[in-house]
Nucleic acid binder design. Structure first.
Length: 809
DNA sequence: AGCACGCCGACT
DNA sequence: GTCGGCGTGCTC
């Protein structure tokens, strides 16, 4: 038997399966989807089996060395899906395969070091080199990476040792898996024999008798820690019985349960509203018999979409099928998870970025083994390896975070469509502010459309006031809080109601400027201003991580009038304290939510009324639901509007609508105040009137006129290199080649300098293809991109290809 | 991507 | 004379 293996060399040359012979001993463990280690040239690599065959065309096949998992980590569907992704998003097959398994299964390569006879005999005149050799002698084999850390001169000594043949090196392929094991105790003999043994124990062996008596009453296996705490005995007692051969100790794989010790109360099942019922009945149509049933669920904030999800999910599980719920990372809050855990309990696996790698792996294995029926997680949970998938939900489907911003640059919505078709599953795209793409699809009748226009309990949508900050300035108000916002804050403080205050970070972060000469602190490696971080008095670059100390005087002119501009959350917090003495602010941003569980804790504090204001960035824009919040302030509603991106208006509308939706979700009426310098912009106007439809009509007109999605599709190419003339030359040559290759109807813009013209000392140029949905375009581009690989090798120019880009930078 | 092979300059 | 620079080519 032969296996087609895609190996861990993710470049164009090797981006294809290689044939390997399967040795008889491994044959029972090799499947499509298995992870194996194989010899590749002089090296030993990890690879994935993508096919099996009785024969091979290849003359000299080599043998698979090892199978790395007992069960294959990927299903056949995943292997198929990886192929599709690699074609659609122009990445290598291996990259696509690898992105579907948890990080711990990504290969780690290391080398083992052994001493040769010459090495054994070697005596160094240097005492520390002598110590180095003794270290190897005592512990061999020693891992290469470990010894490099232990000895400062390891590299030189290893190099010399190899040359002089004192050491021998062997490469190993492993993974980062550390499976948690638990110790299980079970009786080794019959109950009668246990009873007999109990009588024979010495009188002083009281503890051992207690343990035996447990097993006599409950004849069966029990985890050791459980037994110890149950009986209040030490493991000494257990050990004695194991030694006597009465009990058996075995290590079994256990799962780390990130939710252990927490209980989930099932949410009371409210009777459905009429509109919820209509939607549920409609979606269920797609389940009997199962067909691919894509639909858009447009429901205003607070209309009860989650209830619909829960119900459809329950029916899916009743059919014996599985479900995936995708949510944006930032709304993957305990609140959200608890509702599903409450309903489906241990049938739910949650994939969370805050979980440790090991915990993620455990959750993933539960899915792979079919031990759970529901997977909840952010983008990558779309790859949950279920085998009988009946339902995929993308909540907040308009969210940009569903697009992965590294290779493979897939969109979870597209993958949902692929998997939905494969499994004849229901795919629900849910949002209060659907993406232009999805709403357009629905309007054209290409996907089913459901709507929920009313909030549960007929609560009115909050009243929105748009405040013109230019007028505020004219009236002499130079603070970041307008008069109406000030009044409303005071009003809530008096009534003891809570406030959510939203500040968009993007395009509005703190930068440092000298008021004497106008100097702005820039990153020396990227064309971007540095951001001030008050917590450790540093300036940081958000792109490359460059950090420097806060300047006391202007490095250009020596002036002391160097000030922090812009409005970061920290600054807002200070200002709040200044204008509203005694106000209790809970600030949520990267600085305050860094630690594990901090995010959760802050929200809990706010819920318990330990703060008057919840102040934050994007992360507070969605999913949160606090009964006592009656005011939402948006400090700079238009901060997104001026970004060089065709989705700026759409993003602004979505953000303002989502943030506004945080107010008045319960008995108390809500109010939203939007501060802006663009009062008349349609995205702000329609958002303030909760008028999605009108916004859509206006925006789709713009998209049509300017050949943007959903009418045209985009592919963005970014070139990066230190050398600008070379960059220009090569990118122009590439563009010319593309123009010659793409079919008529598709056209190319650029190349031009990228909006961020330099990152990590590399200058950036970009060009963009626009095309109507023509199946010939992507293969044509792929061909040019593959041919470019030689150029890349020669010149060192980096090229990234982003199909369906979400961000234009 | 690595790692080998292979063909030309600066040293013991 | 050799050591070592990194260009080119291959990996079932």
């Amino acid at each position: 038997m032969f296996a087609q293996v895609v190996v861990d060399v993710p470049v164009v040359d090797t981006d294809r399966p290689f044939d390997y012979r399967i040795p008889e001993s491994l044959a029972p463990f090799v499947f499509v989807g298995s992870r194996v280690s194989v010899p590749f040239g002089p090296r030993k690599l990890q690879g994935f089996v993508v096919g099996l065959a009785d024969t091979s065309e290849v003359e000299k096949t080599r043998d698979i060395l090892d199978v790395l998992d007992v069960e294959p980590p990927l299903t056949e569907e995943m292997v198929w899906l990886a192929r599709r992704i690699s074609e659609r998003y122009m990445c290598t097959y291996y990259t696509a395969l690898q992105s579907m398994v948890p990080a711990v299964l990504r290969s780690s390569y290391d080398k083992q070091i052994f001493l040769t006879a010459a090495g054994e005999a070697f005596v160094s005149v240097l005492s520390d080199e002598q110590a180095f050799y003794e270290y190897i002698r005592n512990r061999q084999p020693v891992l290469w990476n470990k010894i490099m850390k232990e000895f400062p001169f390891a590299a030189a000594w290893l190099d010399e040792g190899l040359k002089k043949n004192r050491i021998r090196v062997e490469q190993i392929v492993g993974d980062r898996v550390t499976k948690k094991t638990i110790t299980i105790l079970s009786p080794a003999v019959s109950v009668e024999e246990l009873e007999a043994a109990q009588g024979e124990l010495s009188k002083t062996a009281v503890r051992q008798k207690e343990v035996l008596s447990h097993f006599i009453h409950f004849y069966g296996p029990i985890p050791q820690p459980e037994l110890l705490s149950l009986l209040g005995v030490s493991n000494q007692a257990v050990k004695g019985l194991v030694d006597k051969g009465l009990l058996i100790k075995e290590e079994v794989e256990g799962y780390r349960d990130p939710f252990s010790g927490r209980t989930f109360t099932p949410a009371p099942k409210h009777p459905f509203t009429a509109q919820q019922k209509t939607v549920i009945d409609g979606i269920v149509e797609g389940m009997n018999p199962p067909v691919y049933y894509p639909c858009l669920l447009h429901g205003v904030t607070g209309s009860g979409k989650t209830e619909v999800y829960l119900e459809i999910m329950e029916r899916t599980i009743d059919q014996g099928r599985e479900a995936i719920l995708l949510v944006p990372e930032i709304s993957l809050t305990p609140q959200m998870v608890n509702r599903f855990k409450g309903r489906f309990g241990s049938q739910v696996a949650v994939m969370h970025s805050r979980l440790s790698q090991g915990e993620r792996y455990d959750e993933w294995r539960k899915i792979r083994r079919g031990e759970v029926k529901v997977a909840i997680g952010a983008r990558s949970a779309i790859f949950a390896p279920f085998q009988n998938l009946g339902l995929i939900i993308l909540d907040e489907e308009h969210e940009g975070s569903y697009k992965q911003e590294e290779t493979p640059r897939y969109h979870a919505r597209t993958i949902a469509q692929y998997r939905g078709m494969h499994h004849h599953a229901v795919v629900i795209l849910g949002s209060a502010t659907p993406s232009m793409e999805s709403y357009h699809e629905a309007k054209k009748g290409r996907i089913h459309f459901f709507e929920m226009r009313e909030r549960v309990g007929n609560r009115p949508l909050p009243e929105v006031t748009v405040v013109d900050m230019r007028e505020e300035l004219r009236d002499g108000n130079r603070t970041m809080f307008s008069k109406p916002l000030m009044d409303s804050i005071n009003n809530r403080l008096e009534k003891n109601e809570q406030i959510v205050m939203f500040l968009n970070r993007r395009g509005f972060s703190t930068f440092v400027m000298c008021r004497s000469c106008g100097y702005v602190a820039q990153c020396p490696h990227c064309d971007i201003s540095l951001t001030y971080h008050r917590s450790n008095q540093t300036l940081r670059c958000h792109y490359c991580g460059y950090t420097e100390r806060e300047p006391q005087i202007c490095p250009e002119c020596g002036s002391e009038h160097i000030r922090f501009f812009g409005t970061g959350t920290q600054k807002v917090e200070e200002e709040l304290a200044r204008y509203f003495p005694g106000i209790r602010v809970i600030r949520m941003d990267v600085d305050t939510t860094g630690r594990k569980g901090a995010h959760e804790k802050l929200l809990q504090d706010f819920r318990e009324g330990k703060g008057d204001v919840l102040l934050g960035t994007q992360m507070i824009a969605k999913g949160l639901d606090f009964p006592n919040v009656t005011l939402v302030g948006v400090l700079a509603a238009d901060s997104l509007l001026n970004l060089p991106d065709f989705r700026a208006a759409e993003r602004t509308f979505q953000l303002v609508t989502q943030v506004g939706g945080r107010a008045g979700r319960h008995e108390k009426k809500g109010e939203v105040i939007l501060q802006t310098y663009n009062t008349e912009h349609y995205s702000i106007q329609y958002a303030s009137r909760h008028d999605y439809e009108s916004f859509f009509v206006e925006e789709i007109k713009q998209r049509y006129e300017k050949n943007y999605p959903p009418y045209y599709r985009l592919v963005l190419f970014t070139f990066a290199h230190e050398n600008v003339p070379l960059l220009v030359k090569i990118s122009e040559r590439f563009a010319r080649k593309l123009r010659e290759t793409i079919p008529p109807g598709a056209y190319l813009l650029g190349p031009v300098a990228s909006p961020i013209a330099r990152i990590k000392d590399r200058y950036r140029f970009q060009c963009m293809i626009k095309y109507k949905n023509d199946p010939r375009v992507l293969p044509a581009i792929h061909q040019v991109v593959r041919a470019f690989d030689e150029e890349r090798k020669k010149t060192g120019i980096m090229l990234t290809v982003d199909v369906d880009p979400q961000m234009m930078m």
